[in-house]
Amino acid sequence: MAVIAVAAAGPAEEEAIAYAEVCLSTTFGMETRRLGPFPDPEYAYDAARNQYSSTLVLREALDRRPADALKLMVITDHDIFIPMLSFVYGQAQLNGPAAVLSLSRLRQEFYGLPPNHALFLLRVRKEALHEIGHCFGLTHCSDPLCTMRLSTNLQLLDEKQAEFCGDCATLLRDAINTSTTGAIK
C-alpha cells in the first residue's frame, strides 16, 4: 500500500504533526508513516532575513525520503521563504514527491493575537492538504472555497474550506490511481 511519510525538520509542534498525519491519511486514503525527526535545517538559515529557505529544506528532504514513500511532508516551526517572496506558508514540488510546510505563520500569536488552537489546527489541515495536493499534480483552483485555492494571506486561508472542490477531487482521484498503480509496479 502507498505511504505518505511525515517528518519534522527542526522544532515542530507535535500535536500539529500528528493532526496533519490524520488529515493526510483520511483525505488521500493512504497510510502515513512518521519518520524520525530531520536535523534542524541550519544550512537553510538566512541571517539577513531571519528565515529559512524552503527550497533548501525541500532539497534536503528529497535525500531523506524512504524509497517506499510515495510522498513526503516535512513540517517545521521555522518561518520559511523563497528568495523572490517575503514568506511562504509552504512549498511543494508540483507532481513531485516532497512538500514542506511552516507552522509559524499559521498561529495567531505570530500576528500578536491571542492564541486560538482550533483555528491553528484547521489552518494546518488546509495547508497540508493543499501542499500534498500539489504533489499529486493539482494546481491552484479558482473556486474560492476549495482548499487548492491560492492563499497569499490569512484572510484567504481562513475563507476557504479544508476540502477539495468536485473538480479537484476528481483530478486527485485520477492522480492517486495512476501514481499508486505505478508504485506497485
Binding site: P83, M84, L85, Q91, T139
Partner: peptide, 17 residues
C-alpha cells in the same frame, strides 16, 4: 542568474498552473 532564485519562483508560479 541565481539558480535558487529562478527555480523557486518558477516552482511557485507552476503551482498556479
Amino acid at each position: 542568474d541565481e539558480p535558487v532564485m529562478r527555480e523557486s519562483l518558477a516552482e511557485w508560479l507552476a503551482e498556479d498552473g
